[in-house]
């Protein structure tokens, strides 16, 4: 019934936005909140209900970096790569976290769909660089140790295992 409930919510979202094609971005944002990504068939449905071509919806959905067409992991980790964070070696954090989660280059989500690791341009928390967001929570003035500790906590909670074996 979960899929059904979600779909009803999509119908609701489209209606609330007056089936207005100008509201495409808010509609996609709301749908992504519901599904945590934008499923293809739902985008086709959105195109149908707004009377626009699916290619256009796809074009918009792929243009903006906050939209994703692939399901994301349960925990989304976003490492800030704004100037201030970059200066404070935030990309090292990124590498360290990817290594911990056994993510190889080009891969942003682990096979168990527990984690998605990505970068973000600037969180506006520059005074506290380097910063990262885990799910909706922002963490600042990170060191590699603190960042790993945060990740390890989640791994322990999710798997009940020690983090060093994650993904191995």
């Amino acid at each position: 019934m979960e899929t059904l409930r979600k779909f009803e919510r999509v119908c609701e979202i489209v209606d609330q936005n007056g089936r207005n094609e100008a509201r495409l971005i808010p509609i996609l944002q709301a749908i992504q909140v519901e599904y945590r990504y934008l499923p293809e068939e739902i985008l086709t449905f959105v195109a149908t209900s707004l009377g626009i071509s699916p290619a256009r919806v796809f074009g918009v959905a792929t243009f903006y970096s906050l939209f994703t067409l692939k399901p994301k992991g349960k925990h989304v980790i976003r490492i800030c790569n704004g100037t201030a964070c970059h200066v404070k070696q935030s990309m090292d954090l990124y590498d360290i976290i990817c290594t911990r989660l056994n993510l190889v280059a080009g891969q942003d989500t682990d096979p168990d769909m527990l984690f998605t690791v990505e970068t973000v341009n600037c969180l506006g928390a520059c005074g506290l660089a380097p910063a990262m967001v885990i799910n909706e929570e922002v963490y600042g003035q990170l060191t590699p140790e603190r960042a790993l500790a945060l990740i390890d906590d989640i791994i322990r909670k999710e798997t009940g295992n020690e983090p060093d074996h994650y993904g191995a």
């Binding site: 790569n81 100037t83 201030a84 341009n121 600037c122 506006g124 520059c126």
Partner: peptide, 11 residues
């Protein structure tokens, strides 16, 4: 839409 990485005045 303050996108400049490292600027947060408007925020």
């Amino acid at each position: 839409d303050e996108g400049d990485p490292g600027a947060f005045m408007d925020m």
